[in-house]
Design a binder for these strands. Structure first.
Length: 919
RNA sequence: GCGGAUAUGGUGUAAUUGGUAGCCACGUCAGACUUAGGAUCUGAUGCCGAGAGGCGUGGGGGUUCGAGUCCCUUUAUCCGCACCA
């Protein structure tokens, strides 16, 4: 009987579905384990062979944990709001809900073929009102809370209002947009609109008039992580800076906690480093500089107060609020021209020529608080308005940008740390002896930094301060296909909708582009307002809104009372293993942590971090194939002969190429223009060229998992994807080689059934060699799964089978079947029932336990002296006297000690020769 | 510029964590069975060399009895951040 994967896989997928094999419920009697994949955005192109890589790995792990006795939560759903469906809608008029629905159906059928152990009854879709109800709910909660830096947690806005009523801003330490100062009396005198204006300065979800990333091509604003090098991540359109009134999330409030939280997480060091850089904490000092002839103090931020004696000028950002005041009459024209030019330049241009030095004098002077000297104040766009205070003290001797600026404008350069060659470049002195600096002369830099932090405070010039690079997340999008904001306006004052009115459902529309006035699509909906006629917010939420708390919803997906019940959350807690791409490092993974910490503060969830362990699977690239057409003909020349002709390289569909050999008939049938193609062959074959490229339709290198399942079966696909290489590594997909894995599964089958279908499984006793082979494999597989080293697992299975030869003993095959079940569940299930006669699912078969006794002879033992002879590691047949050993000893010292009767720690034997004795 | 990662046969990779480099596959070659082979099975296969033997983990240096593994240095590729004061 042949291994009929098609029949087997269909049979078991159907049974699993009918019997609800993968359904899970809260069960306090068993330990839980939560394995999560980053849910996909269902694009129109469907899944390619790269998408399931992570799903397969997590599925293996889930099945393994289940076999180890854990109650495993392993859900799947769809991140269904987003730009592509909407762009498609704008072009075709097709409602995004419909395309999304179709795409989801396609994804589902593709996923089902691979045999995942998902509990589909817990499926969530972010675009469904029952789901986004809780996205909107969380937004209202954020709107109704502020962050108290003193208690380090979110607190209700009502508490803040009480504080204002009692003492104004006195003693308040809150996360805020700008620092406000008012008394209780002033607060009480404010109108409702004025108060709301003030509160927006503290709310965790708030509306503010700020500089935002505006993408004209997409017609929307974007968050920082959605912009890369001045271009939108999606689509690669130019992005410009624009001042707009937008909704934001005050993620900066949680900057320190998000930074600290990283310590406890089992994430890759590189991913943690990306988040650390993104948060960008830096410890420095705020220092106030007097402005000559003005009752003004210019505030700057510096991490190097020790270099203050080397400050010879100051620079403020063109957007700095005091530009107009600091500019003197004779410089006004130049300053205004410079600011106009800065505004005109796009973000991309600015990034492109960071080398260019530009700036103008304001005409004002500041006074160096330590030297008392007057120093000029400049405006330049190398100082960013968004970081620190938008003003810097320039130390040209020890900062490359200040140096370039000083050189360009002929400003004085005073070295304050020994070393470097200031004729050529600045000297970034992180250590060394301080010079030209009065009170700190002779100190080491490190010492001087500490001293100066204190000195600045002592002299009342400023204080120690921590700055973060992290920005608040811009949360509104001028688009249609997203969650509506549960916000309405009365006289332009924002109010949150009552939570009992949720969900606020997205109205159906026909035209998905912006209005003629440039308003978001929702402006077209005439009755987009409350019952009282107050207009709703027109923009919708960004993609990351729906994905920020989906892992919580899976715990309790059908709950209509809350996001997740306390009971479900107390049991499932948080995600034990999260598998997904590293591209979400500064987006989804930051927002999710923020969102979760906020809900944690409010007591809705019991864990402060959402994802305990995270594994980043690599990207699967495409492997393209080429044919070479002789220019001007319809004749194609094989790779090895192409240098003899003038040829043109053409991408050819990889699905009609096997092992780089072109299927000539399939090629002719592929496209009409190749119908009459002729070929120049080598050895009767047409060999194609190849290259590693991104997997995409236009390169004809997309491999559909459906096709692989059709040809080889899901179990082969699963094992081959793992066999391809280490999970974390990016690698090209290459269908060549899949035969090896497929052959292995057929061999496995052949252990249970003969070709004519006879059952080979017998009850003979296993030999020590067979048991050794089995237990070596059990040990290896257990370790590999825990380490996510699935590629070596597959190799271990192959070795085991090779070693077992034609052994068909139940004693060996039964544990082997349970061992391979996480990897190849269909064939394992079939063998489990049909060959081993089991009646329960292999998914619940106990994972075989490693018994070291079977491996004893293989272990490294310490040598034992018996009658003057060394008994040691029988495998090498050693039976040596002390003298024999002395001859082979490389370290005389080791030999000496050994001969003196001391016990060696380890004896190193290579090719039967002792090469070392470690004492 | 800063930070992180990677580099091993024709290809994907492995190496008990400092101990016989190349496991397991793909590919290639040879053989068997076949009308046939893009099927199946068996064997060989790092490179040079007829052989003995020599050389081999991007390059150079070091530590060590012993280095793919540790240290220094250098090159290449990939990724992240980037006028962040």
């Amino acid at each position: 009987m042949e291994y009929n994967f098609k029949a087997i896989e269909q049979k078991w997928q159907k049974r699993w579905r009918e019997e609800g094999t993968y359904r899970v419920e809260v069960d306090p009697s068993r330990p839980k384990f939560y394995v999560l994949d980053m849910f996909p955005y269902p694009s129109g192109a469907g899944l390619h062979v790269g998408h399931p890589l992570g799903y397969i790995a997590s599925d293996i792990y889930s099945r393994y944990k289940r076999q180890r006795g854990f109650n495993v939560l392993h859900p799947m759903g769809y991140d269904a709001f987003g730009l592509p469906a909407e762009q498609y809608a704008i072009q075709t008029g097709q409602h995004p809900a419909i395309t999304t629905e179709e795409n989801i159906a396609r994804y589902r059928s593709q996923l089902d073929k691979i045999g995942f152990s998902f509990d589909w009854e817990r499926e969530v879709r972010t675009c469904e009102p029952e789901y986004y109800h809780w996205t909107q709910w969380a937004f209202i909660e954020m709107f109704e809370h502020w962050y108290n830096n003193k208690t380090q947690k979110a607190e209700p806005i009502s508490e803040l209002v009480k504080h204002f009523e009692e003492m104004g801003t006195e003693l308040l330490d809150a996360a805020q947009t700008t620092k406000l100062d008012f008394t209780a009396a002033e607060w009480c005198a404010m109108t409702e609109a004025e108060r709301e204006q003030v509160l927006q300065n503290y709310r965790l979800a708030f509306r503010a008039d700020t500089m935002v990333n505006w993408c004209p091509a997409l017609g929307t604003v974007l968050a920082n992580d959605e912009v890369k090098e001045g271009l939108s991540v999606r689509g690669g359109h130019p992005v410009e800076q624009k001042r707009m009134k937008q909704w934001l999330l005050r993620v900066t409030a949680y900057a320190q906690r998000m930074l600290d939280g990283l310590e406890k997480l089992e994430w890759s060091e590189s991913l943690k480093e990306i988040q650390r850089n993104w948060i960008g904490r830096s410890v420095g000092a705020q220092v106030f500089f007097d402005v000559a002839g003005m009752d003004r103090k210019l505030e700057i931020f510096t991490t190097r107060p020790d270099t203050i004696y080397g400050v010879t000028f100051m620079v403020i950002a063109p957007e700095h609020e005091w530009v107009a005041e600091l500019t003197t009459e004779e410089n006004r024209e130049a300053v205004e021209a410079y600011i106009a030019e800065t505004k005109r330049r796009s973000e991309r241009e600015r990034i492109a020529d960071t080398k260019r030095v530009s700036g103008v004098k304001t005409g004002s002077y500041a006074i160096n608080p330590f030297t008392g000297r007057e120093i000029p104040i400049y405006i330049s766009d190398y100082v960013l308005s968004g970081y620190g205070t938008g003003a810097i003290m320039a130390v040209p001797a020890h900062d490359s940008r200040d140096y370039a600026f000083a050189r360009h404008f002929g400003l004085e350069i005073i070295p304050v740390v020994e070393g470097g060659n200031l004729e050529v470049e600045s000297y970034d002195a992180k250590e060394g002896k301080v010079i030209n600096s009065d009170i700190i002369n002779g100190m080491d830099v490190k010492e001087a930094i500490v001293f100066m932090f204190e000195e600045v405070e002592r002299r009342g010039l400023g204080k120690k301060l921590i700055n973060y690079r992290l920005r608040d997340a811009i949360f509104s999008r001028q688009r249609y296909w997203g969650e509506p904001f549960p916000i309405y306006y009365k006289d332009d004052v924002a109010y949150a909708l009552d939570k009992s009115k949720l969900p606020l459902t997205l109205p159906a529309i026909k035209d998905f582009g912006p209005t003629a006035e440039g308003e978001p699509p929702l402006a077209r909906v005439s009755d987009w307002c409350t019952e009282e006629g107050h207009p709703f917010e027109l923009s919708t939420m960004p993609g990351f809104a729906g994905s920020s708390a989906y892992y919580l919803r899976y715990m309790d997906p059908h709950n209509n009372e809350g996001l997740v019940s306390k009971e479900a959350n107390d049991y499932w807690r948080n995600v034990d293993l999260y598998v997904g791409g590293i591209e979400h490092a500064t987006g989804h993974l930051m927002y999710s942590r923020f969102w979760n910490m906020f809900l944690y503060d409010l007591g809705y969830v019991c864990e402060s971090e959402p994802f305990k362990k995270l594994v980043n699977q690599g990207m699967i690239q495409g492997r393209s194939n080429f044919v070479y057409r002789i220019v001007g003909t319809n004749k194609f020349v094989s790779l090895g002969l192409k240098s003899e002709y003038d040829t043109q390289e053409i991408h050819v569909d990889v699905n009609i190429v096997k092992n780089d050999i072109l299927d000539l008939e399939a090629f002719k049938a592929w496209r009409p223009e190749f119908h009459d193609a002729e070929f120049v062959l080598e050895d009767g074959k047409y060999i194609c060229g190849w290259a590693i490229e991104k997997m995409s339709k236009s390169m004809f290198n997309v491999v559909n998992p459906d096709y692989i399942v059709e040809q080889y079966g899901a179990d082969t696909l699963r094992m081959y994807e793992m066999f391809l290489g280490p999970l974390e590594q990016s690698k090209p997909w290459d269908t060549n080689g899949i035969d090896g894995v497929h052959k292995f599964l057929r061999k496995l089958w052949g252990k249970f059934f003969s070709r004519d279908g006879a059952l080979l499984v017998n009850d003979q006793k296993a030999t020590p060699a067979e048991l050794k082979s089995l237990h070596k494999t059990i040990k290896k597989i257990s370790e590999d799964i825990e380490n996510f080293s699935f590629n070596t697992s597959v190799a271990a299975f192959m070795i085991c089978l090779n070693e077992l030869g034609d052994c068909s003993k139940r004693e060996i095959l039964e544990p082997l079947t349970a061992l391979i079940a996480p990897f190849a569940p269909h064939i394992a299930e079939e063998l489990w029932h049909e060959a081993l006669g089991k009646t329960t699912t292999v998914c619940d078969a106990e994972f075989p336990v490693f018994n070291p006794e079977y491996l004893v002879e293989n272990s490294f033992e310490y040598p034992v002296m018996i009658n003057g002879k060394l008994r040691f590691k029988q495998e090498y047949g050693l039976d040596k006297t002390q003298d024999d050993i002395a001859e082979h000893i490389v370290t005389t010292e080791g030999a000496q000690k050994w001969l003196e009767g001391k016990a060696p720690k380890k004896i190193i034997v290579v090719k039967g020769k002792i090469i070392n004795i470690v004492m």
